[in-house]
C-alpha cells in the first residue's frame, strides 16, 4: 500500500532536484518521516545525503521537518505523521533551519 504525499523543499534542494516548490511522492504506508524521505531519495537520488546522512539516516543538523504547523524534527523517524500529511491534504515541509549566514 502507498499514499500520495506532498513534500515542500527549500530552494537549494529544489534547484538541485530541478523541481518546483512541491513534489508529490508515492510513499509506503504507514506514512512516516523515514518513509517519506526514503521515497524522496528514491525519486530524486541527487538529494541523497542532503537531508539526512547516508549511513546513519540521521537528520542533518540544520534541516528541520514540519507537518501541519508543528516542528516534527525530533519525532521518531518511524512514527506515523499527521493524517493530513499522510492523505496529501497538507504538505510535509523540509526546511533549512534559520542558522548561520
Amino acid at each position: 500500500m502507498t499514499a500520495r504525499v506532498r513534500v515542500a523543499l527549500p530552494e537549494h534542494l529544489r534547484n538541485l532536484a530541478k523541481v518546483g516548490s512541491e513534489v508529490e511522492l508515492e510513499v509506503a504506508t504507514p506514512v512516516t518521516t523515514a518513509a517519506i524521505l526514503d521515497a524522496l531519495e528514491e525519486r530524486y537520488p541527487v538529494l541523497g545525503g542532503t537531508v539526512r546522512d547516508y549511513g546513519t539516516h540521521r537528520r542533518r543538523a540544520f534541516v528541520r521537518f514540519f507537518a501541519c504547523g508543528e516542528d516534527v524534527s525530533h519525532e521518531p523517524a518511524d512514527a506515523p505523521v499527521d493524517e493530513a500529511v499522510a492523505s496529501g491534504r497538507e504538505p510535509f515541509l523540509v526546511v533549512g533551519a534559520t542558522a548561520g549566514g
Binding site: 534542494l13 541527487v46 545525503g49 537531508v51 542533518r60 533549512g96 533551519a97 548561520g100
Partner: peptide, 27 residues
C-alpha cells in the same frame, strides 16, 4: 557544499556551461 545540506559533487562535460550532480557518498 553547505552547512545545511552537506556535500554535492558537480561535473561538467562542456567546460562549465552545464553541470550534473554526481556521487556524493564519501564513506
Amino acid at each position: 557544499s553547505s552547512g545545511w545540506f552537506g556535500q554535492v559533487v558537480q561535473r561538467s562535460d562542456d567546460g562549465g556551461r552545464t553541470w550534473e550532480a554526481v556521487g556524493n557518498k564519501f564513506e
